[in-house]
Write a protein that binds this DNA or RNA. Structure first.
Lengths: 343, 343
DNA sequence: TGAGGGCTCTGCAACGATGCAGACATAGTG
DNA sequence: CACTATGTCTGCATCGTTGCAGAGCCCTCA
C-alpha cells in the first residue's frame, strides 16, 4: 500500500537519504554519476514524494480552502472556477466546501476540530456567520471574505460596490420609462447585509429621479434561487397594480421571475422588463436573454487570492476593503434588442 | 504565526505531551482533575491540532480529490455538490480541481510531482486521458472513474447506461411522430467514447422503428457547451430538409439549440422538439422547459464515494463497472405540456 | 609540501502528532 | 502483609521529509 520512501530509494542506490532528497529537489550539487544512480533507483521504485511529510516539515500545505454556500449555484461555480485558476497560477490547490447556507456548518469551520488548520488560508463567502463571530474565534489561518459586506474592518474583503450596482440597474429601468419598478430579494434582517445594500441602491435610484418607492413592490426572499424568484413574481402579479419592471438581486431570481411572466402570457420586456445581477452564463442564453449587472469575477478571484497569498506570507497590512469593478450588460429582457449570438 | 503545539500546552499545564494528546482525543483515562487542568490550558492557548502532523502519523489525510473538466458546467457543479455531501457523510473533505478538458492538465495529475499523493483517493472524470495511460502510471492512490466509458476494466467506474439512455431519448421523439430527428454532440474520435455510446443509442432507436438515419442529421461538436449547441443548430437549420426534432447529448447543447430555434422564429416543440441529457436545474426553468434524461446524480456520487472508500480501506475487490439508474423526464420542449412550476 | 578552498556527500535533529510499553501509585485479594 | 490487578500518567520512538553543520576528498597555489 504505502509507497517507497526516501529511505528505500537511498538503500537501493547505496547513498544517504539526504542525497536522494537533494536529487529529487534538484538542490545541492550532486555529481552526474551519483545523480544518475539515484535517478535510476527513483525510477525503478517509482518513488513519489510524500507531500504530507513535506508539508509538515515546511509548515505549509500549498492548499487553500474556498467555502461557498452552494456550489451548484452558477455564480459560485463560476467564481470557484476562477479561484481555482488563480490559485493554480500561484502554485496552490483549492479545497472547495459548501455550507448550504447553514450557519452551523459555517461555524464548524471555526471550531476547534475544523480542518481549517490543514490549509494555508481561507476564502470565505459567508451567509450567516457575522464578522464578530469570525473575529471572536481568534483564528490562526488567514481569511479573506468574499461578497458579503462586513461593516467592521476586521478582515480583508473583496466585493463589488453593491449600492452603486443596484442603483445603476434600477436607474436603467427607470430610464426606460418604467414607473412601477419592483425589487425581488430584500433580506431585512441581520445576515442579509448584501441584500440590504442592494435595496438601498434601489431606493437611491428612485430618489435621484424624484420618485416614490411603493413598499409593496419590494419583495423579500429568504434565498436567491429560481424558485424564490418565481414565487415572488407570482406575488407581484397578484397586486392590484402589478409592476412594469423588476430588479432582481441575482440572475437566478430573475430567471425564475421571467419563467412566471412568460407562463402568465406576459411579454418580457414589453409588459415587464427584468434585470438581474451576477451575469451567469445562463442569462446569455435564456429566452429572452437577461440584462444584468456583471461583476468582474476574474478580478474578484484574482484579488482575493492575491490578498490571501500576501497574508499567508506574513504581510501584516491592515484589512483591506477591496472594491472590484462591475458593469451593466443590456440584453433583451429590458430593451428587447437582440445581441449577436456568441459563436 | 504558528499556533501553540501540544508541547506548549503540556508545559503550561505541567503534564506530559502525551497526556494533553489524550485529553484532546478523549483517549485513555485521565483523572477529572487533570483533565480540567489540561482543558484550561488548551482553552487559554486556544490550541488547534495540527492536522498535517496528525495525517503524517496516521498515514491518511481525510481528503479525496474530485477532478472534473469544468466546474462551471452545471452538470459537474451539481455532481460536485453531491460528491462533497456524500464525502462529508463519511468524514472526508473534497479537493476540487478542474482540467479544462486539457489532456496535459489531466496527465499532470499522474506525474511524479502531482499533489495526488496528498489525497487518500481520487475521483476522476477524464476527458482525454485514456484508461491505458491511467494504468500505465502505476498509481498508488485509489481511483474511481466517473462518467467516461472505459473499455478495459482496470478501474472502478460509475456511470449511467449511455446507450440505453440515448435510445430512450430518441425513441421518445420518434414516438411523438417525428421523422427527422437530429443528433447534436457526436465525437467520432478516440476520446469521445461517451458521445459515441450516445450516437449508438440514437441509431438503435431508429433501427428498432425500422427507420433510416440521415447521416447529415448527426452533427459532431468538440465540446458540450451552449455555444456548440447553438452553432450545430444553425447548421441543421441550413439543411434543405431541416429536422423536426433534436436529441442533444447534454442539456447545455439543448439550451443553445433552443435559443437558436426561438431566435429563428421556430416554435419548440411545435416545429422542432428538443431533448437533452443531464437534467440540470436550468432546464426546469428554461422557456420552454427542457425534456431530458436525468441521471441519478446523488446515486452516482454516493456509489463513487462508497467504492472509493472501500478501495481506500484496502478492500482489493476487482474493478467494478457500476451502472446507475436514469430516467426520462418529459417537459415542454417535446410535448408542450406545462408542468407545475415548483414552488 | 602544506594550507586553503571548492565540491560532494552525509548524519543528526526537527516539524507536531500518536503508538507503545512501561512506571508509579493505589486498591483489592487471600 | 505480600502480591496482583487496576487506573493514571509518562517517555521514547516514529511517520517521511528537509535544514543545518560538517566530514571527506581533491585540487590549487604559494
Amino acid at each position: 500500500m504505502a509507497g517507497p520512501t526516501l529511505r528505500d530509494v537511498a538503500k537501493r542506490a547505496n547513498v544517504s537519504i539526504r542525497t536522494v532528497s537533494n536529487v529529487v529537489n534538484g538542490y545541492a550539487p550532486v555529481s552526474d554519476e551519483l545523480r544518475a544512480r539515484v535517478q535510476a533507483a527513483l525510477d525503478e521504485l517509482d518513488y513519489r514524494p510524500n507531500l504530507i511529510a513535506r508539508n509538515l516539515k515546511q509548515g505549509r500545505s500549498g492548499m487553500i480552502a474556498l467555502v461557498v454556500p452552494e456550489l451548484d449555484v452558477p455564480y459560485f461555480a463560476e467564481l470557484a472556477r476562477e479561484v481555482i485558476t488563480a490559485a493554480r497560477a500561484r502554485g496552490y490547490v483549492v479545497m472547495v466546501d459548501q455550507t448550504d447556507g447553514d450557519g452551523e456548518r459555517e461555524r464548524e469551520l471555526l471550531g476547534r476540530d475544523s480542518r481549517a488548520t490543514m490549509f494555508d488560508g481561507l476564502l470565505l463567502s459567508p451567509l450567516s456567520v457575522s464578522a464578530e463571530e469570525l473575529r471572536a474565534r481568534g483564528n490562526r489561518v488567514p481569511i479573506v471574505l468574499l461578497g458579503e459586506h462586513i461593516f467592521n474592518g476586521s478582515f480583508h474583503h473583496v466585493a463589488i460596490d453593491n449600492v452603486a450596482a443596484a442603483r445603476e440597474a434600477t436607474a436603467h429601468l427607470l430610464g426606460l420609462g418604467r414607473r412601477r419598478v419592483a425589487a425581488i430579494g430584500d433580506q431585512p434582517y441581520a445576515t442579509g447585509e448584501t441584500a440590504q445594500l442592494r435595496t438601498s441602491g434601489y431606493r437611491q435610484a428612485h430618489v435621484r429621479e424624484g420618485l416614490e418607492v411603493d413598499e409593496r413592490l419590494i419583495v423579500p426572499t429568504p434565498r436567491f434561487h429560481r424558485r424564490q424568484g418565481a414565487a415572488a413574481m407570482e406575488q407581484l402579479l397578484a397586486l392590484p397594480e402589478p409592476p412594469d419592471a423588476v430588479f432582481c438581486y441575482n440572475d437566478l431570481l430573475a430567471l425564475g421571475a421571467m419563467r412566471v411572466l412568460t407562463r402568465a402570457g406576459l411579454r418580457v420586456p414589453d409588459d415587464v422588463a427584468v434585470v438581474g445581477m451576477d451575469d451567469i452564463e445562463e442569462g446569455q442564453y435564456s429566452t429572452p436573454s437577461l440584462t444584468t449587472i456583471a461583476p468582474d469575477k476574474k478580478e474578484i478571484a484574482r484579488m482575493a487570492v492575491d490578498v490571501l497569498m500576501e497574508s499567508i506570507s506574513g504581510a501584516a497590512r491592515p484589512p483591506a476593503e477591496i472594491v472590484v469593478p462591475h458593469r451593466l450588460i443590456v440584453r433583451e429582457s429590458t430593451t428587447g434588442q437582440v445581441p449577436a449570438i456568441p459563436s
